[in-house]
């Protein structure tokens, strides 16, 4: 073959409901965004539903380089999650049953009236 037919690759992103982000689905060969859209619908959504569809020509996508990706393997960062604060749940439960006095000492008796909604 002297001359191969050439197409653009379009990456397809879909959103399953309006509160969700667009998620990458797959890609299609097409000659225009309109064509890519039409083809993506039938290729990838014969069963699944979507509320929004994006097609992006692949050369318009800028990808993070290999070495930069390594930088995202971060040192442990539990301090920025709730993982380190799991103990609070037990503390709240304890103080509901054994409330402190204003000086910080345990109160003589009884629980704090009422609920502590989560």
């Amino acid at each position: 073959m002297d001359e191969r037919l050439d197409f653009d690759v379009y990456e397809v992103f879909a959103q399953s409901d309006s509160l969700s982000p667009h998620v990458h689905v797959f890609n299609v060969l097409a000659s225009s965004p309109d064509m890519a859209m039409a083809l993506a619908e039938e290729n990838f959504f014969r069963r699944a539903e979507f509320v929004s569809l994006w097609v992006v020509r692949r050369d318009q996508i800028h990808q993070i380089g290999f070495h930069d990706r390594e930088g995202f393997q971060k040192t442990p960062k539990a301090y920025r999650t709730t993982d380190d604060y799991k103990y609070l749940r037990d503390k709240w439960r304890y103080y509901r049953d054994h409330p402190m006095n204003p000086d910080g000492s345990p109160a003589a008796g009884g629980t704090v009236d009422g609920t502590m909604d989560d």
Partner: peptide
Amino acid sequence: EKILREKRYHLA
């Protein structure tokens, strides 16, 4: 070893 990975990213 661990810190280097983040350093590369900082330097970049």
